[in-house]
């Protein structure tokens, strides 16, 4: 993946994963190839991502191997670990969870085809999502769903031609989602987790 002369920066940033999924049914080769373009990997690096994981579906292995070998990260000056798998029969929940923020992992990102199952899973787990509808599909009803959800501010509608822009949009959307404005008071409302409120009422304390 990277040449030996290419050393990791001294200050190791938090892990941050970008997970790309094309779904289980149809192939979506254009999304895989766009995600392995040098311009996109550079954009990922600029946004502080350290990992790119791709679910490339059945028959996508060859394309994935070719493109990821062809990527010269040393020349690009980036350090993004690239990995992939074809399909997980147990579903993608564990992969989506790995994107969520935890102790030394920063909140990552999911880039997905517009399948409603993935959209619902990502929304349920509250992970940032970019949806890229597959233009190769006939009569793609999934575009409709993606448009409505992006209009309502739940996700970013990404275009194959300009995926780096979708990264910027997603960052902005995430910031906006976190600071909702209360119509009545005009102040931002930061929702508190019920779990925190319960633990406060129990008096749980680390000190």
């Amino acid at each position: 993946m990277a040449s030996t002369s290419h050393v990791r920066p001294a200050t190791i940033p938090n892990q941050r994963r970008c997970f790309v999924t094309i779904g289980a049914t149809a192939s979506f080769r254009s999304l895989i190839s766009v995600c392995l373009q040098p311009s996109f990997v550079q954009a990922l690096d600029k946004h502080g991502f350290t990992e790119l994981r791709i679910q490339y579906g059945k028959g996508g292995q060859e394309l994935f191997d070719d493109l990821s070998k062809g990527l010269n990260q040393a020349a690009l000056g980036t350090w993004v670990e690239i990995s992939g798998f074809d399909i997980n029969v147990n579903g993608l929940t564990s992969e989506l969870r790995a994107v969520k923020a935890s102790q030394d992992v920063s909140e990552g990102l999911v880039i997905s085809h517009a399948g409603s199952g993935t959209i619902l899973d990502a929304m349920r787990l509250d992970v940032p999502l970019i949806v890229v509808p597959n233009p190769e599909l006939l009569d793609n009803h999934q575009i409709e769903l993606a448009e409505v959800f992006s209009d309502q501010g739940y996700l970013v509608y990404g275009e194959l031609r300009n995926l780096p822009k979708a990264l910027d949009d997603s960052k902005l959307l995430r910031r906006k989602q976190k600071e909702q404005i209360n119509v009545n008071t005009g102040r931002p409302v930061v929702p508190v987790e019920p779990r925190s409120i319960m633990e406060y009422e129990m008096g749980f304390s680390l000190e």
């Binding site: 779990r195 409120i197 406060y200 129990m202 008096g203 749980f204 680390l206 000190e207």
Partner: peptide
């Protein structure tokens, strides 16, 4: 409430209640 330790301290993860305001309220009532 009076402050008390977590029954399962391994899994104490509470971004919400560790705000300064709450800490202040809980301090001294342990």
């Amino acid at each position: 409430p009076k402050a008390r330790p977590y029954p399962n301290p391994h899994l104490a993860r509470t971004p919400g209640i560790n705000t300064p305001y709450h800490r202040l309220k809980l301090l001294g009532t342990f």
